[in-house]
């Protein structure tokens, strides 16, 4: 059973994660806008590199580590 401190940490963690998500997406949008208009003339961009894909997968790995830690520590 999770303790009161753990419970508080959980609620604060949810809020901070939501805030970070909103901030990141807003930052991207403000910096990049709606569309990449260069694409109209030059055609589609090249497919992402394997290194870029691996970084995305590493983010997923981090997410599942945090999820497992949340379940384990919150047991």
């Amino acid at each position: 059973m999770i303790g009161e401190t753990g419970f508080r940490v959980l609620l604060i963690g949810f809020w901070l994660a939501e805030f970070a998500f909103a901030a990141l997406v807003t930052y991207w949008f403000v910096g990049e806008g709606f569309s990449d208009d260069e694409d109209v003339e030059s055609g589609p961009k090249p497919l992402e590199s394997s290194g870029y894909t691996l970084r995305s997968l590493a983010m997923w790995g981090g997410f599942f580590v945090v999820l497992l830690a949340m379940i384990t520590l919150g047991a």
Binding site: V25, T26, Y27, W28, F29, V30, G31, E32, G33, F34, S35, D36, D37, D39, V40, P44
Partner: peptide, 9 residues
């Protein structure tokens, strides 16, 4: 969307 939408949107 023309395949050119930015990642934030």
């Amino acid at each position: 969307a023309g395949g050119r939408a930015q990642v934030g949107l």
